[in-house]
Design a protein around this nucleic acid. Sequence first.
DNA 1: GTGAAAGCGCTAACAG
DNA 2: CTGTTAGCGCTTTCAC
Lengths: 335, 335
Amino acid sequence: MTATIKDVAKKAGVSLSTVSLVLNNKTNLSPETINKVKQAISDLNYHPRHSARGLASKKSGNIGFILTDDHFSRAEPFYTKIFLGSEFEARNYNYYILLTTIEQNFCKKSIPRFLLEKNVDGVILAGHIPDGLINFLSNNYNIPVVYIDYLPPKGKSFAILIDNVDGAKLAVEHLLEKGHRDIAFVCGEISHPSMQSRFLGYKQALKNADIPLREELVVTDELATSDESGHNATCKLLKTGIHFSAIFAGNDAMAIGCMKCLKKKQISVPDQIAIVGFDDVDIANQIDPKLTTMRVDKEEMGAIAIKNLVEMITKEKRNFGKVLVPVELVTRNST
Amino acid sequence: MTATIKDVAKKAGVSLSTVSLVLNNKTNLSPETINKVKQAISDLNYHPRHSARGLASKKSGNIGFILTDDHFSRAEPFYTKIFLGSEFEARNYNYYILLTTIEQNFCKKSIPRFLLEKNVDGVILAGHIPDGLINFLSNNYNIPVVYIDYLPPKGKSFAILIDNVDGAKLAVEHLLEKGHRDIAFVCGEISHPSMQSRFLGYKQALKNADIPLREELVVTDELATSDESGHNATCKLLKTGIHFSAIFAGNDAMAIGCMKCLKKKQISVPDQIAIVGFDDVDIANQIDPKLTTMRVDKEEMGAIAIKNLVEMITKEKRNFGKVLVPVELVTRNST
DNA sequence: GTGAAAGCGCTAACAG
DNA sequence: CTGTTAGCGCTTTCAC
């Protein structure tokens, strides 16, 4: 049988509850008592049993992580990395993460089991989450919730978001520093909050540099944010005949599409036209020329979520607001 | 307070232990008793508390899922889908899955916490797993283990594997049916068991069709199994001047590389040369022409793992051997 | 500071 | 087939 708290108490020559107090670092015990106990714990290779703790403390020691299945199995492992960051951070706080996916068209039947069984002390919701689940949570549960990369349409919430505005500004400022003045912006799905923010950052950077916004250098009417739409947008720009020496693309996929178009037309990147993307997807570093882009620390986003969630759980308080995770310029060969 | 087993017993007018028996469908209770209890359970929206069960039964109700971090965050969401299949199946058996990643260079410090805390009833190991962890598990634990897409180098084990031999046979048979006789095989990293099996399947299919194996149509000396190595291998084949009307590539990445090379040389696919890949990665369906390839049901692999693991856990027995998951031909435009 | 004792909600004997 | 009972390992009052 593996060691129990009783064994530790016996070995350390203290009472059972003293060990418990050490375990949960409650009250000020004498340092020597603490040391004795800690010694016994490591001697016996003791690990408190999750279920026993859970039963006695009415806390599960688990954190739920929910995202939609399509988000999770996308080729770009964006959410995977966020999860990894969470899982890693959760180890420090001795929480387990229960990961589950839901379908985009949410129905009562698909409520995560750990919610029904009240087996999580808090929940992380990553990416676009159906309203049905959000409402279900807020109506039936009082556990803390942290959103990642998604801001629920209404109500108070706590969200970890990418600083798209600032990131876009940095991207454009990089181009400005390289001496570019005629900088095009190419984007699709402009109704998406991220894209709007990036567009805003583009405009702000130009304004700060006293460069007027020229509508003819802006293409935002592509439907998607894909490779293909980047290609199309670039073709459109070239057809106008208007001069530009750089493109800031709404994301890497589009930036790659831009490069493909330019390659076809024998326009050299970065000599004739420089390109900056956004996201730093894995292939950004594999294409030729390698794409200069904006990187977000996904693992960090997951870690921040855990830190905040644990704080809310243990202090029984609720945080509200947004945390904007900074974006970093990754300079490569396309600029 | 949420309902407990006591409330259910009271509501159903039976004893506490009767409810427990229903919950664990032990012994043959009278159908009407069962119904009464089930009614009470749903009336009260009762869910047994995981921790209480765990404490009393000495089972955690959890299954550990371990893979290396690089496997998990690969662009191709192969293991992600396997995990999803596991998670989905685990719901049916009321298990939670604890997902964690380890580093390829395993050290004692990185032993998953749920192992140290003995908080899983069984473990799934997906993809290449460092020997250190395998040894640690077999030396210190007696919980059932299921491997997915990896066969540990030594010792008895239970593994869910892709039926690469049969899959490759099917691929080549498809080409044979289309009338091809001169079928090239293009592959890299031939020391990898999967690639060896696919090569074997290629040879078997030819043999069954009474077509002699022609070494000059086989390229297995590429180092990687990437896009680029597919490209190189195809160039090599073309340079020899030997006629062939079809290529079976070791995987989709290589197949795509083959297509790129052929495109450059203005050789039309599938009119002049047909191509079959293996894996059915997401982009296989997005390139032009769309790639005919072999698909493996990743979710199914995860589900099979869970089914077997649960059986081993509940029946306290150990299964050994291999389960080969069938591969399916996905016919698209490259053949 | 530390120790004793009472549960947390459930399972698993056992006796009826 | 049903009810009683004794824990599982821990937290948490409450005395000391």
